[in-house]
Amino acid sequence: MRAGGRWWAVALAVAVVAWAVAVPRLGLGQLALWEDVAIQVLFATSVNLLLGYANIPSFGQAAFYGAGAYTVALLAQSAWPPLAALAAAVAVAAALAFVTGLITSRVTGLAFSMVTLAIGQVLYTFVLQSNAAGGEGGISGVAPPARGLFDLTQPVHLWWFILLCVAVAMLALWWVVSSPFGRALTAIREDPKRAAFLGIAVRRYRVMAFTIAGGAAGLAGGLYAYSTTIVAPAVLNWTQSASPIMMALVGGMHTFLGPALGAVLITWLLYVLGQATRAYLLYVGVVLLAFVLLVPRGIVSIPDLLRRLAGGRRATGAAPEVTP
């Protein structure tokens, strides 16, 4: 980690905790918004494990997010305790991702994206037709049983519970990307052929990454079910796969926290603009476009960009900086 990186981490943690304490005082609407933010942070980060670290362009992550959401919704009907239901959501989503990863492991590039998209849509169509999953209407009234260590039917308790789950999952993902496996993934991203000639069985690593990302997406989906209390087929739709990709793009792939920042910005923006105008998607689109054109490396690159702009102005006429 860079010098000062530790201080940034501490400052960030303090800010998050302060915000977490403040949010419940802002009313139920804000609580729902920021729960969604936290969940999308996890979802976007899980997608970025594939996109940014392994260069696996999956357009079907909503399948695993949705699988997690439906697992929790169905198990909540039989009064499963939340931790057990969420563990099941992770397991179901990871298993599904493992199978999908195996099936798609021989395909690369655009064809791969299309296959993952198709698999997601198959699941979407299946749930739409399924009576057990509530068909078009989905499952509503998802709630944890009103007992246990702390009563999650209380909005504030649920808020803290969701934050805790997201925090633990984020730490786990951070652990994965900075492990030897994480390094191997970035190596595969850079040059899969070179990696193979170092003895790295590229396909197996892709399947592993796919499984881990799928499990994390499943957890995000499960938390989403508790947060919104309603799970409809739309959670499985491809638009749901596109949004974490956009968050990662806006925030900055190839970094761990970039997609999280992107998730915060976009989820918040969608909410604020959604309140202000019916054409909110148009404005979000404009913001997206602006980012892709002006800050292609995402929010995380802004400090660097500003520094270079400021430095450039001061150093006009001087020899150009020779950073490799």
Partner: peptide, 8 residues
């Protein structure tokens, strides 16, 4: 050791 994801 490249498969080790459980140790940082």
């Amino acid at each position: 050791l490249t498969q080790v994801f459980w140790r940082r």
